[in-house]
Amino acid sequence: MIKQSKLPGMLTWATLLFFYLPIILLVINSFNASRTGGSWGGFTLKWYEQLFSAREIWHALRNTLVVAVIATAASTIIGTTAAIALHRYRGRIQNAHYFLVYTPLVVPEILLGISMLLFFVALKVNLGLTTVILAHITFCISYVAMAVLSRLQDFDVTIIEAARDLGANSWTTTWSILIPVIFPGIMAGALLAFTLSIDDFVISFFVAGPGSTTLPIHIYSMIKRGSMPLINALSTILLAITFLAILAYQIISRHNRPQED
């Protein structure tokens, strides 16, 4: 074997360092008693204490979870039917359908946000939690549909034909064969929808009204107002949750893999 260049490897590890340095500094600074973070002022937990006593944060967290749960449930159902239709049928209707499902993935968030704001204002709909939920369902549908579709592409259609030949009707084939086989894709899509919904700032910011502040909107206003140590503490907690969730997801999916292959 030809000796490989060391350059790509060095670049990769340097990039990973670049990825993590700001995040590590942020975590360290959340325990820093000095307000600005340029120097070490001693260890403290006071930012966490202040964080837990801030009522708006809990309110924003509650809004975020309400939106994420409803948007995930609705978009998982609509996205899954969309993927099954796109996989099963061909023709002009499905071409238009694919265009509608695919385009939101490549349209910048700010355009989705402003267009939905204009739509709601033109219809004189009051902005609030409902408009945020409607907007989240809209952008999550496409991600769920793509996740399920990629699972369907590996699916052996002849199994369905075999079941039909053996007398199963379409209801049975759908619920006993199709759904169980694509279930990992549905779960992946739902997880994606949930994460995207929790993390979304730009679209929510445009369509949110008074009282429907979500956690990212609250974090944004904290960044703007400049209470830096509090954001450090909040970010550290969110980072820890994300890290644990990904780790759990990786372990579960690795655990399932040998059975699938």
Partner: peptide, 14 residues
């Protein structure tokens, strides 16, 4: 998978 705002904020602090 980490919050987009947090990653931007981390740089603002740096």
């Amino acid at each position: 998978w980490t919050s987009f705002l947090i990653r931007i904020f981390a740089w603002k602090a740096v």
